[in-house]
Design a protein around this nucleic acid. Structure first.
Lengths: 353, 353
DNA sequence: CTTGGCACTCCACTCCAGCGAGTGCTAATA
DNA sequence: TATTAGCACTCGCTGGAGTGGAGTGCCAAG
């Protein structure tokens, strides 16, 4: 991929100084000046020299200053360079991993998968002091286990679907006429015989097929079964969802102290819609992905970075998890945490299914 | 109930002026001065006279000023007096009610009761520009309709409960040994025969009884049924929950513009725990209840008021709903809205069950 | 009891000076 | 040629002084 004009590789010295500057800025959020950098860079260079280097880095698009007489702050490009090539990650200690695993499972005593998702989300937000987000797992291939119908008042029927051996979905269907209990029972029996153990997508397809092919030549019982089944499976995909935790952590950051900005951000969280879109993109990728500032494409997140990783059940990617924080988050700490949490969550979900 | 010292009834003039002052303060949040009040009170009184009255009201605890040369603001006591005796509510127009009803049901196309709750919550927040809150309905008497067990891997069993003809609860039970599919089927049959149509609380009691009485003299099948049943019903009450909407509206109010306060408030919302406690209290009451400032007993809500009303299904109180906003909210508008929304929600839930 | 008058208080705003931090540039140096 | 010291300059921040306005409390007259 062609870089933008003027983005030649940095010299080793430039790289080192950029790294130190980013680290310092991440620590306290204050613009870093030449004097400070010269003292803490480890290189024996005077502030004047540092200033020359900084001026170069600014020309290259890595730094900018809020005003003439302040120090310099990293741009998005600098963070990008930082995470891509400059920073080195300490792989977490085994005992640290173990402690994470325990916390993850402690927080999810309710044995549902949803409890684990919530636990993962608050675990992420708790240890990073950022906002944690985890999408609810969603398998492409859902195995239908059992169907049950119960009549309600009017023309309505409560349908219960057991899927993937552990999830239960239920919906109220409103039908064109009232069905008797025995009709419903035989319909359920028929559908179970035909479709139990099959993939939901397949089931949907075949139902449409059957209904098409045999419109009215059918046995009465089968016909009602098909009618019911069609309604049941015709629903739009159950919408995806995610669990957010520790949003309030974001209030601490000066970058977001403007109440108006905060408000819009929190509204977006509540809406979920826009945000899901962003998370969806990351499902196709592999490993930890990082969106710095504007890279996310949402102007609400201009001052934020998003670090995500997909997680898997049975080697199938079923969701993603991550954190949201200010661009000046502690990447070297956050990235390994997101990575390991994704793996732990996948493993925990596996062991429960 | 004895009033606090010095709280004699107000004269008509004092009452009127207090009312106007509160109204003005609610409108723009600025302390109200004697000049303004004299112009807009409708009484032909000079600012000097108004000042005398205001000084009296201050002595009585209804007013206070932030500093010498500012106007005066109502105290909690003044709001209390305002809502109790001063304000008169315009009963909402029939067409207004109808529009509310339509909005409530539009927002709840997913036919579950939860969808209605969510819709009510965002309806409340939408039209009041405050935070809306609705607890999920919870009946004291839950009618058990059907039980089903499905074996999972290991010693675990997925149990499905249909309750009140429309709600489905499911839990994963972890048992002392593996049960075969036929064992589970007969257990379910047994429990259904015995308990279908009965109240859950009764079921729980009787299960314990049976288990106690007939420990090991029992038929094998019944014994496993009882074991399963006991685990199933032994769980603590499913925790109550509420749905919050439009929290971000609260960010607009100057009273809460302090980010630190906001943060603690939002954290409390996310925790839910403390907050549920407050809502629980209101379940016993009747009609609209109002907590002004410190009356709620939560110091986080010192600058807030909470207006709530219980709602009913089949004349049984099953939950409450309301709004949270700054103490200077437009009570005369908000109170009727909360009242009518509670009635509409109850009605809507009824028609779907 | 009401009112006009008056002195007083306090906040909010503006203006200004002084400071400290940091820069860019230039000229000297290794 | 790369580095450094020196220096003038810029800019934001802080604190104090000054001003205007809003509102009060009190008093004495109607």
């Amino acid at each position: 991929m062609a870089r933008k004009p003027g983005k030649k590789d940095l010299t080793e010295r430039q790289g080192h100084l950029l790294k130190v500057l980013v680290e310092r800025y991440i620590e306290d959020g204050q613009p870093v000046g030449s004097r400070r950098l010269s003292e803490e860079s480890g290189l024996k260079l005077s502030p004047a020299t540092i200033r020359n280097v900084m001026a170069d880095l600014e020309k290259l698009g890595y730094l900018h200053s809020p005003h003439t007489s302040a120090g310099r702050m990293p741009t998005g490009q600098a963070y990008r360079m930082f995470v891509d090539t400059l920073v080195k990650f300490n792989p977490p200690e085994p005992e640290e991993i173990d402690s994470l695993r325990r916390k993850l499972e402690e927080g999810a005593e309710g044995s549902g998968g949803k409890a684990l998702v919530r636990s993962a989300s608050s675990l992420l937000s708790g240890i990073t002091h950022l906002a944690g987000v985890v999408t609810v797992p969603r398998r492409n291939h859902s195995n239908l286990r059992q169907i049950e119908f119960l009549p309600l008042s009017g023309n309505r029927v409560l349908s219960i679907l057991v899927v993937n051996n552990r999830e239960v979905q239920n919906r109220v269907l409103t039908l064109d006429r009232a069905y008797t209990e025995s009709e419903l029972r035989s319909a359920a029996n028929y559908l179970n015989e035909q479709f139990a153990g099959r993939d939901i997508a397949q089931v949907r397809e075949q139902l449409l097929d059957d209904l098409q092919r045999a419109r009215d030549s059918m046995h009465n019982m089968m016909s009602s079964a098909l009618t019911l089944g069609r309604q049941l499976f015709d629903r739009k995909e159950q919408q995806e969802d995610f669990v957010l935790a520790g949003e309030t952590n974001l209030m601490d950051f000066a970058e977001l102290s403007d109440v108006e900005k905060l408000r819009r951000l929190f509204e977006a969280f509540a809406e979920k819609r826009d945000f899901l879109h962003l998370l969806d993109h990351t499902l196709s990728g592999e490993g930890v992905q990082i969106f710095i500032g504007e890279e996310s494409g949402y102007d609400l997140l201009d001052a934020c970075s998003v670090v995500t990783s997909p997680y898997t059940i049975d080697d199938e990617v079923v969701g993603m998890l991550g954190v949201i924080g200010p661009t000046r988050m502690a990447y070297q700490r956050v990235i390994p945490i997101v990575d390991i949490t994704a793996k732990l969550l996948g493993r925990a979900l596996n062991s429960r299914s």
